[in-house]
Amino acid sequence: MSRWNLHILGVGNASAVELGSASVVLERDGAPMLMIDCGQEALSAYLARYREPPRALFLTHTHLDHVAGMERLFVQLYFDPARRGSCRLYLPAALVPWVQHRIADYPGVLAEGGANYWDAFRVIPHSRGFWHEGLWFDVFPARHHAPGTAFGLALAGSFIFTGDTRPIGEQLAALGEGREPIAHDCGLVGNPSHSGIEDLEREYPPALLARLHLYHYGAAADGEALRARGCRVLVPGQDLALDAPVARRG
Results as ranks from 00 to 15, higher is better:
residue 76 Q to D: 14
residue 23 S to R: 01
residue 164 D to E: 15
residue 43 L to M: 10
residue 157 G to L: 10
residue 181 P to Q: 07
residue 146 A to L: 15
residue 92 P to H: 13
residue 161 F to R: 00
residue 164 D to G: 08
residue 182 I to M: 07
residue 123 V to E: 07
residue 150 A to R: 00
residue 174 A to E: 14
residue 128 R to D: 15
residue 97 P to G: 09
residue 203 E to P: 00
residue 246 V to H: 12
residue 139 V to D: 03
residue 70 M to Q: 06
residue 12 G to P: 01
residue 237 G to Y: 10
residue 97 P to N: 11
residue 226 L to D: 04
residue 134 G to Q: 10
residue 244 A to N: 10
residue 116 N to H: 15
residue 106 Y to P: 03
residue 72 R to E: 13
residue 222 D to C: 08
residue 137 F to M: 05
residue 138 D to A: 14
residue 154 A to S: 15
residue 133 E to N: 08
residue 169 G to Y: 09
residue 169 G to Q: 12
residue 156 A to H: 12
residue 210 A to D: 15
residue 10 G to E: 01
residue 25 V to L: 05
residue 206 P to A: 11
residue 228 A to Q: 12
residue 227 R to W: 09
residue 248 R to H: 12
residue 145 H to P: 00
residue 204 Y to I: 04
residue 85 G to Q: 10
residue 135 L to N: 02
residue 111 A to Y: 14
residue 108 G to S: 14
residue 159 F to H: 05
residue 2 S to G: 02
residue 93 A to I: 11
residue 15 S to H: 12
residue 151 F to H: 08
residue 11 V to M: 00
residue 223 G to P: 02
residue 194 H to V: 03
residue 224 E to R: 14
residue 162 T to L: 08
residue 37 D to T: 09
residue 189 V to L: 14
residue 71 E to R: 15
residue 42 A to G: 02
residue 243 D to L: 09
residue 136 W to H: 05
residue 11 V to N: 00
residue 243 D to P: 00
residue 207 A to P: 02
residue 85 G to K: 13
residue 179 R to F: 14
residue 39 G to V: 05
residue 205 P to C: 13
residue 203 E to T: 11
residue 141 P to F: 09
residue 138 D to N: 12
residue 216 H to S: 06
residue 94 A to N: 07
residue 14 A to K: 11
residue 113 G to Y: 12
residue 152 G to I: 01
residue 178 G to W: 14
residue 113 G to P: 05
residue 189 V to I: 15
residue 65 D to Q: 10
residue 201 E to Y: 09
residue 212 L to V: 10
residue 249 R to A: 15
residue 52 E to R: 15
residue 1 M to T: 08
residue 28 R to Y: 04
residue 57 L to N: 02
residue 109 V to L: 13
residue 95 L to T: 06
residue 69 G to Y: 06
residue 158 S to N: 04
residue 206 P to Q: 12
residue 135 L to F: 07
residue 151 F to E: 04
residue 192 P to Q: 07
residue 59 L to F: 08
residue 130 F to C: 06
residue 108 G to E: 14
residue 245 P to C: 08
residue 220 A to V: 15
residue 47 L to D: 06
residue 67 V to H: 01
residue 67 V to C: 10
residue 249 R to S: 15
residue 131 W to C: 05
residue 195 S to E: 06
residue 214 L to G: 01
residue 47 L to S: 02
residue 110 L to W: 11
residue 181 P to G: 07
residue 109 V to A: 09
residue 45 A to E: 00
residue 36 I to A: 06
residue 9 L to W: 01
residue 238 Q to S: 09
residue 38 C to T: 12
residue 129 G to C: 08
residue 214 L to W: 05
residue 172 L to V: 05
residue 18 E to S: 14
residue 166 R to N: 07
residue 38 C to M: 13
residue 14 A to S: 11
residue 115 A to R: 07
residue 66 H to P: 02
residue 30 G to H: 03
residue 163 G to I: 00
residue 188 L to G: 12
residue 122 R to I: 07
residue 209 L to T: 07
residue 89 L to W: 10
residue 191 N to W: 09
residue 81 P to I: 04
residue 60 T to K: 02
residue 3 R to E: 11
residue 218 G to I: 01
residue 109 V to S: 05
